[in-house]
């Protein structure tokens, strides 16, 4: 493998209100050879925290041609313990290196005294959690030096201590910290099914004015001990029709916003993934045209 040529000239960092794709190493070459028309690429920050090597060569080559969004999966913003300062430092360094148009993380926790648990674990929605999450977001935004977006979680269980509805919890965080929100529409469908609430009521109650980005992905199905239908946030299949339908509904309230297609497991060929992004682009264009018609 020859080193990739670096022109060191990058496209504008800002993320357009178009469909983007979660970048997978399997697709580096296809993307660099075909230069597909994609709004932006998003990567998991933790996959690019090594000091050097091929992952950075590819990401730099892609960053030169496309706006980039960084999506963290390891900050553990909802952990009771303090943020991992070494990890925060690596994140700051990554933001400095790539000048991403956006940085986002999850309303979840994943670390405890014994280390990193590598899953996005559910939080009880209480005043105590709200206080801790806001303090951590303040720290992250101060350290990284930009606004972050916080993503609504997918959950399989509820916690008995919870007293605040999730949409209110997220609204309060956005108001107190100035962070934006990332609305993962697949997570809404998954959590609404698993926690037995109406996804449309959730979307209608969502603090839409703070939303800066949408995520779309595929779920898998299972059953719990009572034979109840459970949805798993699997990211291993196409976006389901019910999620497309929710997405259209929420766009009516929110207007066109950057929208990411996530497909992290059983990664398909580039053309299959690109097709999903084109479907989202079509929906976004319809919304954009309607907005223009209304304005005129």
């Amino acid at each position: 493998m020859k080193p990739l040529e670096r022109s060191n000239v990058r496209v504008n960092a800002s993320i357009p209100a178009r469909a983007g794709v979660g970048l997978k190493p399997e697709h580096y070459r296809d993307i660099l050879e075909e230069n597909p028309d994609v709004g932006f690429f998003e990567v998991h920050a933790e996959n690019y925290m090594g000091a050097g090597g091929p992952p950075h060569r590819y990401l730099e080559a892609i960053r030169e041609r496309y706006p980039l969004s960084l999506h963290g999966v390891g900050l553990s913003i909802g952990a009771a313990r303090r943020l991992d300062q070494a990890h925060l430092q690596r994140l700051k360094e990554l933001v400095r290196r790539y000048e991403p148009g956006r940085f986002s993380e999850h309303l979840a926790w994943s670390t405890h005294e014994n280390g990193f648990l590598n899953d996005l674990l559910p939080l009880p929605y209480t005043e105590e959690t709200l206080h801790i999450v806001c303090e951590h977001i303040d720290q992250v935004q101060a350290s990284v030096g930009c606004q972050m977006l916080l993503e609504n979680p997918s959950v399989y269980v509820l916690l008995a201590e919870s007293v605040i509805p999730e949409t209110e919890f997220l609204r309060e965080i956005a108001i107190r910290t100035g962070c934006g929100l990332l609305l993962d529409v697949n997570n809404v469908e998954v959590s609404a099914t698993n926690a037995a609430y109406d996804p449309i009521a959730y979307i209608n109650a969502f603090p839409i004015e703070h939303v800066g980005e949408f995520h779309l992905a595929g779920f898998a199905e299972a059953e719990d001990e009572a034979g109840e239908r459970l949805l798993i946030d699997a990211h291993g299949s196409p976006v389901e029709p019910s999620v497309w339908s929710l997405y259209r509904q929420v766009l009516r309230r929110a207007g066109a916003k950057p929208t990411l297609i996530e497909w992290d497991n059983d990664v398909p060929s580039w053309s299959v993934l690109h097709n999903e992004a084109m479907k989202a682009d079509l929906v976004l264009r319809e919304v954009g045209e309607r907005e223009q018609a209304n304005a005129a």
Binding site: L117, N118, D119, L121, P124, Y156, V157, L158, L159, A160, E161, N194, A195, A196, Y197, A222, D224, E225, A226, E228, L230, I232
Partner: peptide, 22 residues
């Protein structure tokens, strides 16, 4: 015991999803 299903009952099998993910 604080990990529950929407009807308030215990959620051992649902908890196993997290265990399996990890």
């Amino acid at each position: 015991a604080n990990v529950i299903r929407p009807d308030g009952r215990r959620a051992d099998r649902r908890f196993a999803i997290y265990r399996n993910n990890v």
